[in-house]
Design a protein around this nucleic acid. Structure first.
Length: 820
RNA sequence: GCGAGAGUGGCGAAACGGCAGACGCGCCGGAUUUAGGAUCCGGUGCCCGUGACGGGCGUGGGGGUUCGACUCCCCCCUCUCGCACCA
């Protein structure tokens, strides 16, 4: 009997595939096959691969192999997101050089990928820490610099005291560093930014093209961008005559303003506090906010705040209202100052109550009397009709909002205008760390910020440097590296000593895959046009905002520069589930990381892949602790593989002379149809279950003395994307095929044979199943009706009464309604 | 608070508005075998019934639409994830 012994052949085929160069994507423009770019999010080389990688890449490999077999010219590349804190911290912890550590891990992971049978095109490997790669990262930075999209400014930024570097807003989760979990601090520093906010509108609008992205990712990005429509209104400080602008989404409530609030960090605050005599009260607040991280202000009490001692004049009615400073107003959003409308904003309401400020209702619920402010228990943010609002009395919302905004901008008024505000901030890209691409800028006392000329790229990372983090960039500590002549005037100047955020590297790597090794630019336009946008992108949902928004931004910038012909890089996005352990995510600190290699050594790579993909839907989390329970004996899929080998072996032995029973032929066609559909929808678990059913039916046919050769061939071919080694072994050894199963054509099905020939007619009485009858698949409505009414069981339930109604859905169902 | 998603056997899970629980694990019974993390056969949602080819109940809870609802609509509960004083 043919036995399943994966140890005997998995590494053998791995070597053969490598020799045969099986998965090379073709750049031949005359290649008639349609292209298919199957892209997996590239890994961080911070150790060996873990089960999470195994899941994501197993799924991606199924998709790639499936498309090869369906006749596509597939681009399925791999690379490493090799710069960044992740690798650097791990290296420092072990006291080794980040470079050595990173490249060693890349070797390790590459070997593991090969052991898992991944169908990568190994000629296109991209490593972001290679000088040949980061040369182009720097080149792209300079293009953004030229366009004014990369700029330096002094701003309050998030600082991770453990990692000793600044972080982008997106890298701060609930006030803590995304990488190490340390609470971030706030610092005022001069840093490099990418002007992502210039693209906020397009990042939103182009979401229409992302129809095959998960709704939750779109929603998360939309929320993160946070577009709000409203108006800017200029108030005047009574004591100084200075203008101060607020942003509001409710200009229709302008006549309800009873106070005014500045953010604590608002630049006018110190002067106004001095003038108003409130400095003693304001200073502690300032002090406190300065030591609170930007992103963890949620604890701030809405009632907290102090009067400035000055007044602000509302332009629409000339009223003077008291000005305050309060932490609930954020400097980072809008203009850093708000008008207080306690009747219609809950935060303003709470603040007004705490400070004894008047509440004036200016929006009446339609058709109702406005409430008495003294009786109100909360603000009323709802729509209604404007009252006590001068020229706008009687105007109903929501159109009142736009009308007031437009009115503000009219020449007679001129103290406001319609405005749009975003939550999105510019992307902070400089890092005070070693392991990243140096920012290719020279600071010249005479010329200012001077780009390093393209021909001098890459600006190489010095290797003889103390890379321990220390608050300023390790590059700044190098004795000589930073001292250069100004490229413009030749005078003494210094290199920028910060490095680029690793998310810059990962924002364009998928372009580089299209033109690996290209030396005249980051990529060749014709290559990118051939392969992109990528048909499929697979990776974890943890990148929903950061990476997936940055790479959309980069693509739009490249489009504007005429370097690519599309504005969205990936058409379809799939988020695989996480592999967790005992209900919790795997992590090094918990010590519950499961690595695939021990499992592979014991059961084989194919069994591991099948196990993961069969366990549950691809998008759901897998608890590895539950899988281990199932392994107290032998993984179910391993037993299945044994049955496959035995059955296929027997089918080959019996040969083509033995006829396949018709039921098996039909099942085979049905299975091809179903599995093809399932693979198009990432329904791997269901597809595998169908292959199991087919295996069982092949076994039954053989046991009954029949043949099963064609069905076995189809089974092996459909197995190929899931269990590439086992399928290859059966294909080339048992079926004695000269070429790989992975370049064979995906089996086709005959729709007529895939259809059921007989159907089970379910007969219900009043919706309850009372009988099941076999009928022809093409039975008519009348056939079904009379068969159902003729059923003795049904008669018994009808008990002689006439059916009130009979619903017939041939050939599956008859429902007899008695009407009693 | 806002947003997204999920709730089905002992477990992982299936199910174009039409046979709920495919497939697999586990468990029970049997076969085979000098014994293996083996293989094969049968059974396995719950309750009643000696047994059915018998009856009833069953997809978080409550309503609704429909001849018919795991599926569609409304309300509620629970869980997961994301955002969170965004003016």
């Amino acid at each position: 009997m043919r036995r399943y012994q994966p140890q005997d052949f998995e590494t053998k085929w791995q070597g053969v595939w490598q020799e045969e160069d099986l998965y090379r994507a073709s750049d031949d423009p005359d290649d008639p096959r349609p292209t298919y770019y199957s892209l997996d999010m590239f890994p961080y080389p911070s150790g060996d691969l873990h089960m999470g990688h195994a899941e994501a890449f197993s799924g991606g490999d199924v998709i790639a192999r499936f498309h090869w077999m369906r006749g596509f010219n597939v681009l399925h590349p791999i690379g490493w997101d090799a710069f960044g804190l992740n690798a650097e911290n791990a290296a420092i912890k072990r006291g080794v050089d980040p470079k050595e550590w990173t490249y060693a891990n890349i070797e390790q992971q590459a070997a593991s990928f090969k052991r898992m049978g991944m169908s990568f095109d190994w000629t296109r490997v991209v490593r972001t820490c290679d000088p040949e790669y980061y040369r182009w990262t720097q080149w792209l930075f300079l293009r953004l610099f030229e366009k004014g999209l990369a700029y330096r400014k002094n701003a309050p930024v998030n600082w991770c005291p453990k990692d000793m570097t600044v972080l982008a807003n997106e890298q701060v989760i609930a006030g803590a560093c995304e990488r190490c979990g340390t609470l971030v601090e706030r610092r005022d520093l001069t840093q490099w930014f990418f002007r992502v906010t210039d693209y906020a509108e397009r990042l939103l609008d182009d979401m229409d093209e992302l129809v095959e992205w998960p709704e939750r990712v779109i929603t998360m990005q939309r929320h993160w961008i946070g577009r709000s429509e409203g108006a800017e209104v200029e108030f005047t400080v009574e004591e100084t005559g200075d203008r101060v602008t607020v942003f509001t989404t409710r200009p229709d409530t302008l006549w309800g303003v009873t106070f005014f609030v500045f953010a604590v960090e608002h630049p006018m605050v110190p002067d106004l506090a001095s003038m108003g005599g409130s400095w003693a009260d304001v200073e502690p607040l300032l002090d406190k906010v300065r030591h609170t991280p930007l992103t963890s202000r949620e604890a701030a009490d809405t009632r907290e705040g102090v009067p400035l001692g000055v007044h602000v004049v509302n332009p629409v009615n000339g009223e003077r209202v008291p000005a305050f400073v309060a932490p609930y107003v954020l400097m980072e959003y809008g203009t850093g100052a708000v008008m207080g409308v306690p009747a219609h904003d809950q935060r303003d309401f709470e603040f007004a109550r705490a400070h004894g400020l008047p509440i004036r209702v200016v929006i009446a619920p339609s058709g109702a009397e406005p409430p008495d402010p003294d009786q109100m228990e909360a603000a009323d943010p709802h729509e209604g009709v404007m009252i006590r609002s001068g020229p706008f009395d009687g105007t109903p919302s929501p159109e009142s909002i736009g009308r007031v905004a437009d009115w503000l901008a009219e020449p007679e008024q001129g103290y406001g205008r319609p405005a749009v505000t975003f939550r999105l901030h510019d992307w902070l890209i400089s890092r005070q760390r070693y392991w990243g691409p140096p920012i290719p800028i020279v600071h010249c006392p005479a010329c200012g910020e001077v780009p390093v000329p393209d021909e001098e790229l890459p600006v190489r990372l010095p290797e003889d440097v103390d890379f321990q983090p220390g608050g300023e960039s390790p590059l700044a500590r190098h004795p000589s590296w930073k001292f250069v002549a100004c490229p413009r005037c030749g005078g003494e100047a210094q290199r920028d000593t910060d490095t680029l955020d690793t998310f810059v590297d990962s924002s364009w790597y998928f372009f580089r895959y299209c033109s690996p090794g290209y030396e005249d630019g980051p990529f060749r336009r014709e290559d990118v046009d051939r392969w992109m946008p990528a048909e499929q992108y697979i990776g974890g949902v943890e990148h929903a905002i950061l990476h997936l928004m940055y790479c959309r931004f980069f693509t739009k910038v490249l489009y504007d520069m005429g370097m690519v012909g599309f504005t969205e890089p990936m058409l379809r996005l799939m988020n695989q589930g996480q592999v967790i352990y005992g209900g919790a995510s795997m992590s090094k600190t918990k010590g519950n990381i499961v690595e695939p290699l021990p499992f592979i050594e014991r059961w084989g790579s194919d069994v591991m892949r099948l196990m993961i993909l069969f366990a549950n839907p691809f998008g759901d989390d897998i608890d590895w602790a539950l899988i281990q329970e199932d392994m107290s004996h032998r993984p179910g899929v391993s037993s299945w593989m044994s049955r496959v080998f035995a059955a296929v072996g027997d089918a080959v032995e019996r040969g083509s002379g033995a006829a396949q029973p018709e039921s098996l032929v039909r099942l085979m066609h049905r299975t091809v149809k179903g599995v093809t559909r399932d693979l198009e929808r990432f329904r791997f678990n269901v597809a595998i279950s169908k292959l199991m059913v087919l295996t069982n039916e092949i076994r039954a046919a053989l046991d009954a003395g029949g043949g099963a050769l064609a069905a076995s061939r189809a089974l092996v071919q459909m197995l190929a994307p899931f269990a590439p080694f086992a399928a290859e072994e059966l294909w080339r050894v048992d079926f004695a095929e000269p070429t790989s199963v992975h370049v064979s054509r995906w089996p086709s099905f005959d729709p007529a044979l895939a259809a059921e020939d007989t159907a089970t007619l379910v007969v219900q009485v009043d919706g309850k199943v009372r009988d099941r009858l076999e009928v022809a698949a093409d039975a008519s409505e009348e056939d079904c009706r009379s068969a159902a009414l003729g059923s003795p069981k049904v008669r018994a339930f009808l008990n002689g009464s006439e059916p009130a109604r009979v619903i017939v859905r041939p050939p599956r169902l008859v429902n007899i309604v008695t009407g009693s």
